[in-house]
Simulated scan of single mutants.
Amino acid sequence: MRCYWDEEDVWFYFEVDAEGWVIRQVELEGPELTPIAAASLAEWQRACDAGRLDAYDNRFGTTAELPVSEWDGHDPEKLTSEGFEEVWGLARQQISSRPG
């Protein structure tokens, strides 16, 4: 799914599991849709276990901490898995290519 937050001019793209937890999240900012986050819960957990959480957060960001069912005031648009994968791939490529 995806949601738009007009106060910050950010599009949020989410992949969620069957219980509504976000497992991957992309954030695109401004009219240029600049990737500012492309986080994976599994990668975040591995970084945490390895003591590299700050480095991961600084580069890729984090996923939402509550399941979708507990969100207030969002109006999600459905998104195909192919649509999410396209956005995910481009965002990860751009973020990974930045000096860091």
Rank of each mutant, 00 (worst) to 15 (best):
E70P: 05
D6S: 13
P35A: 09
G61E: 09
R98K: 14
P76N: 07
G30P: 04
A18S: 12
T80K: 08
E15V: 04
D57S: 11
Y13I: 01
E65Q: 14
A91M: 02
R92C: 07
E77R: 14
A55S: 10
V10S: 03
R2V: 05
M1P: 10
I36W: 06
Q94S: 07
L33A: 09
G89T: 13
P31R: 15
G30R: 13
V16I: 10
V22C: 02
C48G: 13
W71M: 10
A38V: 03
M1E: 10
A38W: 00
Y13N: 02
D9H: 10
R46L: 11
I36T: 14
A18Y: 09
R2G: 11
V16C: 03
W21G: 00
N58L: 08
L90K: 04
P31K: 11
R24F: 03
E70D: 13
S40K: 13
L79C: 10
F84N: 02
R59T: 04
A37S: 13
W71H: 13
A91T: 05
R98G: 04
H74V: 11
I95L: 13
E77Y: 11
S40T: 14
G73P: 00
Y56T: 04
I23V: 15
E8F: 05
E27H: 02
E86I: 04
Y56K: 05
G61T: 07
D75Y: 15
R98P: 06
L90V: 03
G83F: 03
V68G: 04
W21N: 03
T62A: 12
R24Y: 00
G89L: 05
P31A: 15
N58M: 13
C3M: 14
Q93P: 02
E86Q: 14
H74F: 07
T34E: 11
E43K: 14
G20I: 00
A18P: 03
L33V: 06
P35S: 09
V26S: 00
S40H: 10
A91F: 04
I36R: 04
T63M: 01
L28W: 01
S96C: 09
Q45R: 15
G89V: 05
E82N: 15
Q94T: 06
D54E: 10
E29R: 15
L53R: 12
E85W: 14
S40V: 06
D49Y: 11
D6P: 15
R52Y: 09
A39I: 02
F60Q: 01
I95N: 04
G83R: 08
W11G: 03
P76Q: 07
T80R: 10
F14I: 00
